[in-house]
């Protein structure tokens, strides 16, 4: 059980960050279907930097600092990449779903291409040592060994950064002038414009923020679960999109949705660690449990979406290009 919770945190936190990334963009009125591509680009930038720095021994004594720098780099990579979406969706007023799909394809191809071009032997895998980033602290180890294992021993700094992003973005969206204006641009841009808000600027900020968090989320996803990045995040960006819809574009509900999906996703890799599931596998050798647990997160998403989509609270002008001259 402890192992399961610790594993599911590795899935929950990136889902949370990337879904919040999508939220910033959709709140401002741009559908960001390119989350998958943003994650790939961010993960590529971050892991490539870590790979190179670990090779030359840069910041060997301070791995957490290296992690923070590479996360910022991943975010910047994502933000630059998302400016392509911003240009397409805000300035050119093109179809955002198609543009986002194009960026997903660009992201996947670019990451593999660059990895092959800049690595010896045309290798796709960018390998890195992720064990040095583990917090590995003995805090509370004597009193609550389980909590120590989950939150301090096996955890990464990314866990706390994810929670920080959740709190900050909740405050920003609900308690600041910027947040209200951002939401106004997604709900009714004409009204926002009539009171003197520059809709284009707010949409651009929304998209760039989304790109930064999306790229960062990509690295947060790639780092703990593997020792190499292979140019794909396995449909995680789309899962985050589903989390966003299930969370009804509200940060706290997005967090709950992320926990739900993250648990299912973790179950698909750790189901054998549960005794009762192991017993079931022994009892029914003909039932393909592996396949069932792999499919389960997607099916659960579908079911939840079917139940919640009827009374959707999506930003009303999300996906509709804004034309200044037409008003």
């Amino acid at each position: 059980m402890v192992f399961f919770i610790s594993q599911s945190l590795f899935f929950i936190i990136p889902l949370l960050i990337v879904a919040i990334a999508g939220m910033f963009s959709e709140k401002s009125g741009t559908v960001n279907i390119a989350l998958e591509g943003l994650m790939v680009i961010g993960a590529f930038c971050g892991t490539f930097f870590i790979n190179k720095m670990q090779a030359i021994g840069f910041l060997e004594g301070a791995p957490q600092l290296l992690l923070i720098i590479s996360m910022i780099l991943a975010g910047i990579g994502g933000a630059i990449f998302s400016s392509l979406l911003g240009f397409l969706a805000i300035n050119m007023r093109a179809n955002q779903v198609i543009g986002g799909t194009a960026l997903n394809l660009v992201g996947g191809a670019l990451a593999i291409f660059l990895a092959k071009q800049f690595q010896p032997n045309n290798a796709v895998q960018i390998s890195y040592d992720n064990s040095v980033f583990r917090l590995d602290s003995d805090f509370l180890a004597g009193v609550f060994p389980n909590i120590n294992y989950i939150f301090f021993k096996q955890a990464y700094l990314t866990l706390y950064i994810g929670i920080l992003i959740l709190i900050v973005s909740t405050i920003v969206i609900y308690k600041t002038k910027f947040g209200s204006r951002l939401s106004a641009c997604g709900e009714h841009p004409e009204a926002a414009q009539s009171v003197g808000i520059n809709v284009y600027r707010y949409r651009w900020i929304g998209v760039l923020l989304s790109g930064f968090l999306g790229g960062l989320g990509g690295l947060v996803y790639a780092l703990p679960i593997s020792v190499s990045f292979e140019g794909t995040v396995a449909g995680y960006g789309f899962l985050a999109l589903a989390v966003l819809i299930f969370g009804q574009w509200k940060p706290m509900r997005v967090f709950i949705a992320a926990i739900f999906f993250g648990m299912f996703k973790a179950l698909s890799v750790t189901f054998f660690s549960f005794d009762w599931i192991s017993d079931l596998i022994v009892q029914f050798p003909n039932v393909p449990f592996g396949t069932i647990f792999r499919i389960l997160p997607y099916l659960a998403t579908m079911l939840i979406l079917a139940l919640t989509s009827k009374r959707s609270r999506a930003p009303k002008a999300s996906g509709i290009p804004f034309n200044f001259k037409a008003n």
Binding site: I33, V97, G235, F238, L241, A242, I245, P285, N286, P288, G290, T291, I292, R294, I295, Y298, L299, T301, M302, L305, A306, L307, S309, K310, S312
Partner: peptide, 27 residues
């Protein structure tokens, strides 16, 4: 249910792939 087809169809890419692979490796 008015679920956006982009999300469902992308999910079913994965469901289809895992299902087919699971069935092919079944006993």
């Amino acid at each position: 249910y008015n679920v956006h087809e982009v999300i469902t169809s992308i999910m079913f890419n994965y469901v289809g792939m895992y299902l087919v692979n699971g069935l092919l490796t079944s006993n």
